[in-house]
Design a protein around this nucleic acid. Sequence first.
DNA 1: CGCCAGGGCCTCA
DNA 2: TGAGGCCATGGC
Length: 226
Amino acid sequence: MNSLKKIYQILLKELGHQGWWPVTPLGNCRSCGDSLPIYGLKAKTEKQKLEIIFGAILTQNTQWKPNVENSIIRLNEKNLIDVDKIIEISDKELGELIRSSGYYNQKTKALKAMALFLKENPINKLVKMDLVELRKLILSVHGVGPETADCILLYALDKPIFVIDAYTKRIMHKLGFKEESYDDLKELFEDNLDKDVSLYKEYHALLVELGKRKEFDYSTLLKVCN
DNA sequence: CGCCAGGGCCTCA
DNA sequence: TGAGGCCATGGC
């Protein structure tokens, strides 16, 4: 077993299953309060996949809890997890709803751009495309960079794409890996792991959780990297 | 009070 | 292509 696989085993054992990406459960029951996105659920419907796509934009350089979570709840309350409705709503009103996620002017534009994109390229059509072309296409949407595009591909469209983020870069450098660029790090993981969507999802979530834990003892991880 | 979060765009060499 | 400024809220 190679280092990348060993790191995964250690993190899974030490941190436990993360169950990304959080999604709002089906069958919103009005009488039982606001439904919030939950970890460990499978995104089954197109609406849930759309919620993940919007969430991927909203969480750019922002904490999920409570900032983005709150925005997702508010969008759901108004039934705005909907391509047409996001296109129709005014910038001002949308900006107010996602205010807690920060950068709300930029993110309003990004959500609008994504909605217009999805109007022309529905999710059920995207999933059938060639993966390399699909990634380029999603990257062409204004406000969507490498990490956001890859989150969408992995968590919303269930494509075997490994997501790299700031935590992953820091952690891998700390463990002695020399890859610097986003694409080199992405290839490192994809070349050394089985093309397993569930594994990719869980691995990235574990790296984020590890990155948040300042007190974590890296000695075991450093050992398997030698 | 300052720092940082599950980044990306624009500008300027 | 890479570095630097900018965007903005909420928790600690």
